[in-house]
Every structure is written in C-alpha cells, then in structure tokens.
Simulated assay, not measured.
Amino acid sequence: MNAHKISLSNVRVRVAAAVGGLACLGALATGALLQQSNVAVADGEMQLGTTVTPTAPANAPAIAKAEPAIKGPAPLPTEEQGLPG
C-alpha cells in the first residue's frame, strides 16, 4: 500500500494557484461590469472643460450679518458654579 505524501510546498503552490486564479476571475468580472456601465453613460450630453452657470449670482447675501439671539455673558451651569456661600 503506497501512501501518497503531500508536502507543505505542494500545498502552498496549490493555494497560491487558487488565489491567483480567483484574482484573475475577479478582475475579468470587474472589467466586464465596467464596460457595460460605460455604454449607459454615453447617451447624455457631454460638457468638456467648462462650467455653465445659467442664472446670475445674487448681489447681496440672504442674511446681512449673523448676530447672536442672546447678548451678554452666559451664566455658568449649576455643576460649575462652585460651593454655595
């Protein structure tokens, strides 16, 4: 009865081949998906290198100046006021 010996280097080669093969399959599948998605993008209007602004910008900002609703020093929270008296 001859027992077939499996060496550690043989296992490493098989694992490396399996990982490499799966990586190639993943790259091919990703390329195929990207190629299909490029076809759908081509039917829209393309603009190269320019930005078009259809309306004129506002002359003044919507709020002239931001001001706080409460003026003056704020009281400390009760936990930071210290001991009474």
Rank of each mutant, 00 (worst) to 15 (best):
M1N: 08
M1R: 05
N2A: 07
A3G: 14
A3H: 06
A3L: 14
K5V: 15
S7N: 13
S7T: 15
L8H: 11
L8C: 08
S9Y: 05
N10Q: 14
N10H: 14
V11L: 08
R12V: 04
V13R: 12
V13I: 15
V15H: 01
V15T: 05
A16G: 02
A17I: 07
A17Y: 07
A18Q: 03
V19T: 06
V19Q: 06
G20W: 01
G21W: 01
L22V: 09
L25P: 09
G26E: 02
A27C: 11
L28E: 06
L28D: 04
A29R: 04
A29I: 07
A29H: 11
A29S: 12
A29K: 10
T30M: 12
T30F: 11
A32W: 08
L33W: 14
L34T: 03
L34W: 10
L34Q: 11
Q35R: 10
S37Q: 12
N38S: 11
V39Q: 09
A40Y: 12
V41G: 05
A42E: 13
A42Y: 05
D43I: 13
G44V: 15
G44M: 08
E45D: 13
M46C: 15
L48G: 02
G49T: 03
G49D: 03
T50Y: 14
T51N: 06
V52M: 04
V52N: 09
T53A: 04
T53C: 05
P54F: 02
P54K: 01
P54S: 11
T55I: 09
T55D: 05
A56V: 15
A56K: 05
P57W: 00
A58H: 04
A58D: 09
A58R: 08
N59P: 15
A60K: 01
P61Y: 00
P61D: 00
P61F: 01
A62E: 00
A62C: 00
I63C: 00
I63N: 00
I63E: 01
I63K: 00
A64M: 00
A64F: 10
A64K: 10
E67D: 08
E67P: 10
P68D: 02
A69H: 07
A69Q: 06
A69L: 12
I70Q: 03
K71Q: 10
G72S: 00
P75S: 09
P75R: 06
L76H: 09
T78M: 11
E79L: 13
E79M: 13
Q81F: 03
Q81C: 04
G82K: 06
G82E: 03
L83I: 12
L83N: 07
L83G: 11
L83W: 09
P84Q: 01
P84S: 03
G85H: 04
G85C: 05
